[in-house]
C-alpha cells in the first residue's frame, strides 16, 4: 500500500509513480521500500507497506534520514554560490517557462534538478559579485554538472554576467575566459523589482 510522507493515498498518480520507483529499485542493489519520486513536479517520499516492511516503517524512516545525503531531497535556494554563462547555441531556445531565451535579457536558470522547486519560475533574485549587484528573473531550469558538491546554482544570460563582472562578454570565448562567477549573495526580491544592475 502506498504511504506518501506517512499518509495513505489512493491517487492513481502515486500508484504509477510507485511502479516507476519499483522499476528503478530493481536496478539498484538496495530495496528499502522507500523511494523519493517526483509527482506533479513535487519531490515526495513514498513508503511501501507490505509484509516485509509492515511494522518497520519507523526504522525505515530513520534509516532513510541517515541516508539523506544519498537521496535527491529537494533543496532550497542557497544564499551564495556560483554561476555559469549560457552558451550561444541556446540563444532563441524555449526556456522552462515558455519564453524565448535571450542573451540580452537579465535572466537565469536554476540548477541543479534537486533545486528546481526552490522558487517559482518568474521569481526575481538579486545577485552580488565583488560589490556589483544585478536583479535577474528565474525563467529557466538547468542541470549544471554532475558533481553533487558543485557550488553552481545558476546559469546566467551574457548581459547579466557582464553586469556582474564588469567585463565585456560578447561570445562563447569570452564566457569561457570568465568561467564561473562567484555569487557572494543570492537574495529573493519582490517581482516588482526592476531587472538589471542595481544602483548603489
Amino acid at each position: 500500500m502506498p504511504f506518501v510522507n506517512g499518509k495513505f493515498y489512493m491517487n492513481p498518480a502515486y500508484g504509477r509513480a510507485i511502479e516507476r520507483a519499483r522499476d528503478a529499485a530493481q536496478n539498484s542493489s538496495e530495496a528499502s521500500g522507500e523511494h523519493w519520486v517526483t509527482i506533479d513536479g513535487r519531490h515526495v517520499l513514498i513508503q511501501e507497506e507490505n509484509d516485509e516492511h509492515a511494522g518497520t516503517r519507523h526504522a525505515a524512516r530513520q534509516k532513510s534520514q541517515a541516508q539523506s545525503s544519498e537521496t535527491p531531497k529537494p533543496k532550497g535556494l542557497p544564499t551564495s554560490g556560483a554561476a555559469s554563462i549560457y552558451a550561444d547555441k541556446f540563444q532563441g531556445r524555449k526556456t522552462a517557462n515558455g519564453e524565448t531565451f535571450d542573451q540580452d535579457g537579465y535572466t537565469a536558470a536554476l540548477l541543479p534538478r534537486s533545486r528546481w522547486q526552490a522558487v517559482k519560475l518568474g521569481t526575481h533574485v538579486e545577485l552580488t559579485h565583488n560589490g556589483n549587484s544585478v536583479v535577474v528573473e528565474i525563467n529557466d531550469r538547468g542541470e549544471g554538472d554532475r558533481n553533487p558538491e558543485s557550488p553552481r546554482t545558476l546559469d546566467l544570460s551574457r548581459t547579466a554576467a557582464s553586469a556582474l563582472t564588469d567585463k565585456e562578454i560578447n561570445d562563447d570565448e569570452d564566457s569561457r575566459n570568465v568561467g564561473l562567477i562567484t555569487l557572494d549573495k543570492i537574495k529573493v526580491v519582490s517581482r516588482d523589482t526592476p531587472l538589471g544592475p542595481v544602483d548603489r
Binding site: 511502479e19 516507476r20 522499476d23 536496478n27 549560457y86 552558451a87 541556446f90 531556445r93 524555449k94 526556456t95 522552462a96 531565451f101 536558470a109 534538478r113 529557466d140 531550469r141 538547468g142 542541470e143 546559469d155
Partner: peptide, 26 residues
Amino acid sequence: KTGAASGELDVIGRKAGRVVVLGELE
C-alpha cells in the same frame, strides 16, 4: 526539454510482458 540548456531521455520498452520505463538519461 527541461530547460533551454537541459533535457531528459526516457527509454521505454517491454519487460516481463509489461511496457515499462527502462531508464532515464540526462
